[in-house]
Design a binder for these strands. Structure first.
Lengths: 217, 217
DNA sequence: GAACATTTTTAGTCTATCCTAAAAATATAT
DNA sequence: ATATATTTTTAGGATAGACTAAAAATGTTC
């Protein structure tokens, strides 16, 4: 396993390749490599039984491909917690360094780091940290787009994307904040949130999809 | 700069390539690669002006080659301090992981880590940590082989080699220990050290060369 | 200093990863 | 349903890194 293959598997996973077939085109865009390179990498991962391939359709992760993706995400997120909590990185600085570190982290290193950080459950964006064995803890968050009006909810997780995190910083939206949905424009229009203090926040539909929430009990 | 080139430069440095010409043979042994691969890598580093090359004699680092070596050693040693002090790694476990981490560490990461560790001066083996600009702090340690009998000294630094560290563990020799040299066998024979409590320790000449000491004032 | 031994270099391959350009397959649109 | 557009695959190359085997240079020994 090389850093390249690992990144490829992670990209497939992040595009939904654990449950659906991902087109080459999406991978071309996501990884910024040529279409020919995607075809080639598919062939390599296919030979290792990490993906299944439908010609001219795309690829999907096998069970072992998913396990590898989860283990990579575990490493990535544990590093994010370290960078954020111990080294004072901002929300939007952690990603790049974690992306490099995850590929050179021995099991010993990750487990020691996990202990040092007191076995965190979530990374700085609210992403759940997979278990050591590659399984995924249960979580109940769902997209902000699916929330019902009037029922108070809390922000559980946000997309790990630098640009998007800056957008949230601007809107002053943070993990754990409480809101109520007061209005939804039809035809995928913006959503209006209200803070307990009565402040109104407008969120585009596309952004709302990148925010996972849960109802306050 | 790739991890491979970085390791090559570090190997040259560690063999004394900052001040003398290092033969291909030594690099073959040190890096466990073929002689042909060494010749090739020499050609690449020569093109980048990181080494000077005397055909059939060997290579020597240029000023920028030395600076790169120092910066790598800075990264390596800061990671070693972290692994040892914060993650509870043993003396002899730190090397392997530090060797991987040093190649993926951004300047931001290293400087934050350095702050987090309270700007350590030495790594767990007593190696001095180079400055951010690639310069080397002054130290006064010298090989145990050069010590005079009767004058008390202290252990300042030991070779960063797993096998050798286990040897020291066996002999119960640690950084900061105080000893006096009581006897030296001629013809590079073993040295006899004495602890303040009167315990005698026998050290082979080759091992003594890997231990740096300084007189107690 | 000629013969043998060692070391370095050259030549020719191999793999992983990337690319561009062209061909093949699939999708869309009139 | 045929023409056009898009996507994927194939073909052919490039580069970094590593290898083995053979050739060239250097060292050593008697």
């Amino acid at each position: 396993m090389t850093p390249n293959k690992e990144n490829f598997i992670k990209a497939i996973y992040e595009l939904g390749g654990d449950h659906s077939v991902i087109s080459n085109k999406k991978l071309v865009k996501n990884l910024s490599i040529s279409a020919a390179s995607v075809t080639e990498m598919n062939a390599r991962l296919l030979k290792e039984n990490l993906i299944s391939h439908v010609p001219y359709r795309g690829v999907k992760l096998t069970a072992s491909g998913i396990r590898i993706a989860h283990q990579l995400i575990r490493k990535h997120r544990i590093w994010e917690v370290f960078l954020s909590e111990k080294l004072g990185y901002n929300w939007n600085e952690v990603h790049a360094d974690a992306d490099l570190l995850e590929h050179v982290s021995s099991d010993l290193l990750i487990e020691r780091l996990n202990d040092f950080l007191d076995e965190p459950e979530f990374d700085p964006h609210g992403g759940v940290i997979p278990n050591k064995d590659g399984s995924l803890p249960e979580t109940s968050a769902f997209p902000l787009t699916d929330v019902s009006t009037g029922r108070p909810f809390t922000i559980k997780e946000v997309d790990d994307d630098e640009e998007f995190l800056n957008y949230l910083l601007e809107k002053d939206i943070q993990l754990g904040d409480h809101y109520t949905l007061t209005d939804v424009e039809s035809f995928d229009g913006p959503l209006t949130l209200e803070t307990p203090e009565g402040r109104q926040i407008l969120i585009g539909h596309k952004a709302a999809f990148k925010i996972l929430v849960d109802y306050v009990v």
